[in-house]
Simulated assay, not measured.
Amino acid sequence: MAQRPAVLAVLAAVAGAVVALVLGLLTFGVQATAHPHGVPLAVAVAADAPPQLKAVGDQLAGTPSDEVAWRVATPADARALLASDEVYGVLELAPGRAGVVLSGAVNPSGTQVAQQVLGGVAQSLGLKADVVTLNPASAAGRTAPLAASALLWIAGLAAGGLFTVLAKRSGPGARLLGVATATVLSVGVVVGLLRLWDSTLPLGADVLGFLALVAAAFALLQAGLFRLLGVRAMAVLGPLYLMAPAVAGQSPELLDPTYRALLWSWTPFRFSSETLRDLLQGGDVNATALWVFGVMAVVGLAVVLLPGKEAEADLADGVVDVGVDEADRLPRAERQHTA
């Protein structure tokens, strides 16, 4: 028994190392292994362009590359591909000049890579490239989609965790009231911050409605886990916040294929950030995102309403029954002994 503290110290150190390893793989590992894999780009050559320019486009498209996936199109078609996020940038070739066309609606990390690659290609051809940005986004506009998603998650997480600690016993009605309040207040905070950062951002009914859906889905899912696990749910919800923004902030073509398959493919942060980016640029709501957050909300609501005993907030907070007699406030065993 004398060695038990030493054993616990070693076990705690091992647990800390394991946590550091897992979080390192899931967070910093995303940036450390980032590398282009099939970044979609287009080269645009007019139909009446000289044959040598058309040959350049065909040569680019026919060159095997793991980093870039080229598409050859007319300038109008290439810009349509850019508008629909099917490519991250367009290299428009014309006699004696070149143009690099980008879009503010594309993930900033993808835009940055596209500009570097397209500018390098134009330079290798001996052409000076003029950069044109369609639907330009301010610094706040580029930051807002991911920032809003993360802040909505944090608001629901803090509210749900604090409620679980303070309310040792609670019914579904109280939790749902907390979810509704957290949803309204967190959306208000996000909207206020976006207005503060850039008052020109279009925060119409579509943006506000989608923010409310995301906030409600996050809060309901978190409330369901807190209801099942108590504060132990933080061990699941906390790492999700740490790793998801790091993954969702990158274009999928820049992620290591393993991270792309195991994390990016399912993280809800990417659906919220991508859809918000489209909405802020005048686009439409992604139907897939509506399904994702709708299902999250329904599952969370079902767990909150599930009949059964609610998890303890913390084992340390549990009340130990010592058999106190209501008549004389003495433990029953002691009362019987004195008799």
Rank of each mutant, 00 (worst) to 15 (best):
V68C: 05
Q336R: 02
D284F: 09
L276N: 00
L237N: 10
S65P: 01
V39W: 08
G282E: 04
R260P: 03
L221E: 09
I154T: 10
A155W: 11
G224R: 00
E334S: 04
R232N: 12
F226Q: 07
L82A: 12
V100F: 09
A42E: 08
F271Y: 14
A297S: 10
R97V: 12
S170E: 09
A76H: 12
T74P: 03
S103D: 15
H35I: 03
D328R: 00
S186D: 04
T74A: 12
S272K: 06
V131T: 08
P50A: 01
G96R: 01
P252V: 04
Y88N: 14
A20M: 13
Q115M: 11
E334K: 03
K54S: 14
A302W: 02
A333M: 05
E274Y: 05
A20F: 13
L157G: 12
P202I: 05
K309C: 06
A122K: 02
A155Y: 13
L162N: 07
G209D: 03
G188D: 00
A223P: 07
P239Y: 01
T181G: 06
S149C: 07
G16A: 14
S65Y: 08
Q112D: 14
A80Q: 15
A205W: 07
L201P: 03
P50K: 00
V298K: 00
M234G: 03
V106L: 12
R4L: 14
A235C: 04
D321A: 05
Q123C: 01
G249V: 04
T33W: 15
A55P: 00
V324I: 14
A158D: 12
Y259T: 13
A287P: 10
G160P: 10
T33Q: 15
A159S: 13
L262K: 11
P202W: 01
V303W: 01
L263Q: 13
P268L: 07
W197G: 02
S186L: 06
V10H: 13
R195C: 02
H337W: 08
V22L: 06
P268R: 09
A34W: 03
L193D: 00
A233K: 11
L193M: 06
G230P: 09
P172A: 09
A159D: 12
N107F: 01
A289H: 14
L81A: 15
A223Y: 06
L134R: 11
L301M: 08
T164S: 08
S124D: 15
V68S: 02
A144I: 14
E312N: 09
V304Q: 04
K54V: 10
V320F: 02
P64T: 05
R329P: 00
A49E: 04
P145F: 10
D284M: 11
L196I: 01
E274P: 11
F163L: 15
L305W: 00
V295I: 12
D314I: 05
A47I: 08
G160S: 08
S103A: 15
A114V: 04
F269M: 06
G238D: 10
D58K: 11
Y259C: 07
L125I: 01
D58G: 10
A327F: 06
T200C: 10
A6C: 12
S272D: 07
S251Q: 06
P64N: 06
L82R: 13
D198W: 08
D198M: 05
A6F: 08
V179W: 01
A140S: 11
L228S: 09
G104A: 13
V207L: 09
V285T: 08
A311P: 03
A9N: 07
A76D: 15
